[in-house]
Design a protein around this nucleic acid. Structure first.
Length: 147
DNA sequence: GCCAACGTTGGC
DNA sequence: GCCAACGTTGGC
């Protein structure tokens, strides 16, 4: 079987990410509707440092936390980190993202935890970190699970 | 709704 | 600089 589009998504930097949002706060559906957003409100240094490392065209999985607990889509970074307009202190940053594709099937946290190759990813190890890096292999595997 | 994990704050 | 107290996140 020929690989479908999802499993062949790559970006030049070979840096991949997973970004979390509570669907009640900002959902994948809303990103699809709006077509773009700035990823605001990060107030954690480790997550901020990850945002600062992002490059234009980096790909990120979009994860619905809390009420859904599943990866639902892929988005792309369209602008590197700049000051968060909702932040008075000047310490925090945002990036711009656009939606790339919706997974045919959401990949649940339970499915990720049940997959040997994904049992140690940052999403699982550091469950409270809202922006985490992924290897290309991890990114590809989750995409194939959602195809 | 509870609680574990983790980050931050502030007193000493 | 340590650590107790507290707040937040997010899985269960």
């Amino acid at each position: 079987m020929a690989p479908n589009l999802s499993t062949t998504l790559t970006c030049p930097s070979k840096q991949y990410w997973l970004m979390k949002s509570e669907p009640e706060a900002y959902s994948w559906q809303r990103l699809l509707t709006e077509g773009k957003t700035l990823w605001e409100g990060v107030r954690n240094y480790q997550a901020r440092n990850n945002l600062k490392q992002m490059q234009v065209n980096d790909l990120a999985l979009f994860y619905h936390s809390v009420s859904e607990k599943a990866v639902v889509g892929v988005c792309k970074i369209t602008q590197t980190a700049y000051p968060d307009p909702t932040d008075e202190t000047g310490k925090w940053v945002v990036v711009n993202v656009i939606p790339v594709e919706t997974l045919a099937v959401p990949v649940t946290l339970a499915a990720i935890k049940a997959t040997e190759a994904l049992a140690e990813i940052a999403l699982v190890r550091q469950s409270r970190l809202s922006v985490v890096p992924l290897t290309q292999a991890e990114f590809d595997l989750i995409l194939s699970m959602g195809a």
